[in-house]
Write a protein that binds this DNA or RNA. Sequence first.
DNA 1: CGCCTTGTTGACTACCCTCAATGATCGTGG
DNA 2: CCACGATCATTGAGGGTAGTCAACAAGGCG
Lengths: 261, 261
Amino acid sequence: MALQIVAPQTHPDTYFGAVPPSPVFSEPQTHGHRLIAIADRLATEYRNVAVGAELAAFLESEKFLFVVMDGWMFRNAILEDGRRQILDLMLPGDMIVGRRSGYTEVSQSIDAITDATVALIPIHLVSEVIQEMPSLALTLLAASQDALYASYESLVDTGRRTSLEAVAHFLVRIEARAANSIGRTANGTVSFPLIQEHIGDAIGLTAVHVCRTLRKLKTAGVIEMGRGWLKIVDRGRIAEIAGIWEDTGFETEHPVRRLAS
Amino acid sequence: MALQIVAPQTHPDTYFGAVPPSPVFSEPQTHGHRLIAIADRLATEYRNVAVGAELAAFLESEKFLFVVMDGWMFRNAILEDGRRQILDLMLPGDMIVGRRSGYTEVSQSIDAITDATVALIPIHLVSEVIQEMPSLALTLLAASQDALYASYESLVDTGRRTSLEAVAHFLVRIEARAANSIGRTANGTVSFPLIQEHIGDAIGLTAVHVCRTLRKLKTAGVIEMGRGWLKIVDRGRIAEIAGIWEDTGFETEHPVRRLAS
DNA sequence: CGCCTTGTTGACTACCCTCAATGATCGTGG
DNA sequence: CCACGATCATTGAGGGTAGTCAACAAGGCG
């Protein structure tokens, strides 16, 4: 049937329909291309969200699955006094799944960083299609896990890295996602529409401190930035600053204090 | 067939198989009971993990889905110099889904806070069962989203709340989960095996500062704590401190600065 | 009883925040 | 084309929250 195109090529030994590691690129594969294909098939509505506008989605989040088709968005949490935490960035191919919330949870919204387009897929339609194509559910699960692991990275940046480490690590992560979703220009520049306030709100800093931190990275020749773009000049150096170590996949002994218990 | 017991009772209008809101309890429903039932049916192995030990799982995380059956565990990220961030707590009914990692990601491990038991379900078995029972995939997706939203709460605590707010909010969240998973005693006490270092590592503070902060809450009569237990004495007050506001579910106007763009 | 883990408290430090002013950049309209 | 306003970036001075270091107390457990 026509929908076969969205079915991941899996075999029993492949974890949850994940694509095999690419031998060429070091960026992690995302499920974005697959989600976009799904949205093309199942969306009943497309919605445009202007720069700075909010996707009035959370009241209907139990009715639709959202897939970002174009532009940059972010999910943020807002405290009563205006403090704000960006929970995740959403690039084309990322999805938004609502959830019945408990009373302890902070209110969220989805905002557009650039003009953006979102596909709306009715939840009941997703459920129906899954009945005949269970692999769709596995794709959604994998995408959900991607978001979870991205959130974990933000948590480490925010909780346990210094501002310099956190900013460097954040830039590496987002640059990779942007490259993966949108691509780099020939000279290695990626689209990067975030302002310093966005960066600060994503990793728990103020815009002022982000500014000072970025300056260090710029004057050290590690990155170049302008309005709307980013170029990572010295990947080795920024990885070092960010505390990224080539991981072989094998557990190494950490010479660390152990949490006793 | 026998496996029907794990199928959530869903109808098309119900979001992803979530149980309807309970009219009695204000705690959010989890999918724990359902996952435990699934594990009872599908697990090929149970593994005991002693207090303080590490679930040597991440090398095999592409082969198994893990479900915590008993005890408390936590997922943590470790930096090279020993800094540590607790990413999530795992109580009975919580699941662990591995993921092929990208090179920017920090190394993780799963450790036991108390003696714990984990059920191992082979991934290929999950895939097979999903073919004939797609609702299983929806349960897994819902559980994954639960973990994601829990992570978002930690992110807000860590990035945008003061130590007092963060500790209070953390205690409220975990107390609710513990009550939901294990239950409260008649006098309102819940099992709480975390030491102050765990709390600090979960919300980006040092154990010393957690100590000072907990002391404020104790002397204010908001909570009572002892080795292995916690009692929230004044729920109204701690919710106020934590910045939790009864949410009607309707969007209210936030009198806040807007992120310009 | 004695060791080891965990909790507590104090003094000092430092990283990041706040407040504020200025500069750069961009879009817009006269 | 330039002026203007708005947004965003930059820089400085000073302050506060949380970290660090250290010593000691309080419980558990063998």
